[in-house]
Design a protein around this nucleic acid. Structure first.
Lengths: 226, 226
DNA sequence: AAAGCCCGGATTGTTGACAATCCCGCGAGT
DNA sequence: ACTCGCGGGATTGTCAACAATCCGGGCTTT
């Protein structure tokens, strides 16, 4: 047999995925105290694998656990959310630079095609910010893996993105930003296509910085309450 | 009773700490395949808490696990080790900048005192690189926490440092570097004391960059074989 | 009346046994 | 002789019961 790929999928992995998506989608809101038995019945699991999954999620910072006192979904303060974007800024900047140096021509072509798809999606669905959010995630995902930096991709994809997405559904990317963000994406890809790592890094950092300022503005306006 | 502090220390935490230090100290070498029962008897644990700890360590990237096939200590390639330093460079740079903006005067004074202690330690123990390594860890540790950036500190202290320390004992910080490194530390602290975040970031990035070049040189010389 | 203490109930942490899966050495076939 | 397939054995994944610890309501006390 030549199915070297999927190995097997253990119950703990299942529990991990279920919980992670539940947290990201907002089914488990930040600050919620969640009982182990509740989770077991909800996802049809037993406590063994569940506890292993809880350990992993705690280690990634999505859950906080106090011994004998239960486990809660992490609740970021506004300053912590902003700090998260400061980290994203530098890490994605590095990813963009290394992606410009290392992505294959095929990967770059795919990336451009992805942006085209996003553009039609945005044009078709006015204000349907959901697709934009998913598209944005896809874009950053490809660059992270394109960096060929294992640990960097792991930290971005495994830690930061889930935490960002968990808070993003609340502010439902503001009206004007999708078009502007798409333009920024385009210019980043251009820099990558020209193998200009320095420029790609600069543009990516500015892109994330703009997103951060957007969020800070919303917080100050009181639109975004955490 | 007013012992609000230590809560309780669960067996899984114990397992986690034991394994982590065993990996960092080299008792469990990279690439080793480790059986669960071996670990249980070695640390006097049972498999439940152990598996939870394994999950956490896997999530942090210190272990790799294949379902039904056992768990191995992660083994970094030379390029992955170098990439790790690229990540450290930008993250510690950010930490230094934010530390310059946010550390208290008391913390800065303590940091300077720490450096004085390191200096006497280095002078006393010629070539005893171990203390230098620990001192270096202490220095970076203080700056990470001084950044007041929760997630950043968590990523540095929880993920990157353990991985770096795990490989550091092999190259036993080269002869000339301790003094030079101490000088670099001193200048970083000066910048922090003057609240010059930009300079602190620049100096820290250059400091880590030098460490990376040092390692790359060793690898090319064939001294450091992974 | 407000604050502090204590106890019962529920939840978490831990354990040992059971079932499913993979690795390794052996034999058969080419 | 080398490759391929196949059990036996060991190891991992999973489960359900046991023990330890924390939270909330009622009571006493000042």
């Amino acid at each position: 047999m030549l199915d070297t790929a999927p190995q097997t999928y253990t119950r703990a992995d299942e529990a991990f995925d279920c919980l992670q998506t539940a947290i990201v989608k907002g089914d488990l809101a930040p600050g919620d105290k969640i009982g182990e038995l509740d989770l077991c019945s909800r996802f049809d699991l037993t406590r063994g694998p569940l506890r292993e999954a809880l350990g992993r999620l705690e280690s990634r910072g999505l859950l906080v656990r106090r011994p004998h006192a239960g486990v809660r979904v992490v609740s970021l303060s506004t300053t912590e959310l902003v700090e998260l974007y400061r980290i994203r800024e530098i890490m994605e900047g590095l990813a963009a630079r290394q992606a410009a140096e290392r992505m294959t021509d095929q990967e770059i072509a795919d990336l451009q095609a992805t942006l085209d798809a996003h553009e039609t999606m945005i044009d078709e669905a006015h204000g349907q910010a959901y697709y934009q959010a998913e598209g944005d995630y896809d874009f950053h995902h490809r660059i992270a893996t394109g960096s060929r930096n294992t640990k960097l991709a792991q930290m971005l994809l495994g830690d930061l993105y889930y935490m960002v997405r968990m808070y993003r559904y609340r502010l439902s990317t503001s009206a004007g930003r999708p078009h502007r963000a798409l333009g920024e994406h385009r210019r980043i890809v251009e820099a990558i296509a020209q193998r200009d790592g320095e420029l790609a890094e600069f543009l990516m950092k500015r892109h994330i910085n703009a997103a951060r300022e957007n969020i800070e503005k919303k917080i100050q306006e009181g639109v975004l309450t955490i």
